[in-house]
């Protein structure tokens, strides 16, 4: 450090300035914290609130009840939320597995091998990830209606792959570039083929990257709304669509508390997942954007 002043006056001034700066940091941090979490907190408070007190503005848990969760899963009200959850789980799960199966190999080649048109392939993958969903919905709606796939799971999984696979390839490529590939070289020198080196050395090393990418892919697919709202029927409806068109106890009345309960059910697992794997997810989100 450069400040070698023995004079005490500037030192205390500097210290005061430092303390002031750290005070400002804490205030800013608190503001960000509140801004990000308060709406989420409000959703949970409302989810546990008696429907008669929907618009009560008490900022903590009052009139606590499980009723809203019962409404959410109430088949007699026409809500099939359990089924919707399973649908989402199935669609997002299959999408994630397929995208990873295809994405891992492509990302390995893109990050490790020299070949022509690499730039073009990456450009195509990135372009695909920014592709607007509406441009797929129209032709697919007609196609799936014609071949009788409307309201099937593949009608949701196939379009989901269109944006999850590019995301997977892109994230994995960035991750793979950061890995200690010297180990692969050592394995090759020790007599492994490229395939063996990949399977026995690289795969275990790559597991955390693949796992993080899987979480990102799953969340992207789980959160999808546009395609599911157009290409699903009552049998295959996913949670996001179900929440958007929720039926309450009273007709023509927005069932706010029940919707917040449904939102809580859908969100809590994601939030827990995100908090546990916070570091990895941030690394995955920002992989590739910085170099």
């Amino acid at each position: 450090m450069t400040a070698v002043s023995i004079d005490s006056a500037p030192k205390t001034a500097a210290r005061r300035r430092e303390r002031l700066a750290s005070g400002r940091t804490y205030i800013s941090a608190a503001l960000i914290f509140i801004w990000c979490l308060i709406p989420f907190y409000w959703m949970i408070v409302t989810a546990f609130r008696d429907v008669g007190y929907t618009f009560d503005s008490t900022p903590f848990f009052t009139h606590v009840t499980w009723d809203n969760f019962n409404t959410v899963f109430s088949e007699s009200l026409g809500n099939h939320f359990g089924r919707n959850l399973l649908n989402s789980l199935f669609v997002a799960g299959v999408t994630t597995v397929v995208a990873l199966l295809f994405g891992v190999f492509a990302a390995y080649a893109l990050s490790r091998l020299e070949f022509r048109f690499k730039f073009l392939v990456l450009g195509f993958v990135l372009g695909a990830s920014m592709f607007p969903g509406v441009a797929l919905v129209t032709p697919l709606f007609q196609l799936f209606t014609n071949i009788g796939w409307y309201g099937t799971y593949q009608a949701l999984i196939i379009p989901n792959i269109s944006f999850v696979l590019p995301l997977t390839v892109y994230t994995l490529t960035s991750f793979f570039r950061e890995m200690p590939w010297e180990l692969e070289e050592s394995a090759r020198i020790d007599g492994c083929t490229q395939g063996q080196a990949f399977r026995k050395v690289i795969m275990p090393l790559a597991a955390p990257a693949v796992f993080t990418t899987a979480i990102l892919a799953f969340i992207a697919s789980w959160n999808e709304f546009l395609i599911a709202s157009q290409l699903s029927n009552d049998q295959t409806k996913t949670v996001t669509v179900a929440i958007a068109y929720f039926a309450g106890a009273q007709a023509h009345q927005e069932p706010y508390t029940a919707v917040m309960a449904a939102g809580t059910v859908v969100t809590i697992p994601l939030v827990i997942l995100v908090l546990i794997f916070q570091r990895k997810i941030v690394a995955g989100l920002t992989a590739g954007a910085v170099k």
Partner: peptide
């Protein structure tokens, strides 16, 4: 600063919430 990782975790919460739920939440 102390609590930096808590802040980084907190900002991930809005990101993780599905847009459909976000829409309903702010609609409320």
């Amino acid at each position: 600063f102390r609590g930096r990782s808590a802040l980084r975790a907190a900002v991930l919460v809005p990101w993780a919430i599905p847009t459909a739920v976000t829409a309903k939440l702010w609609f409320f």
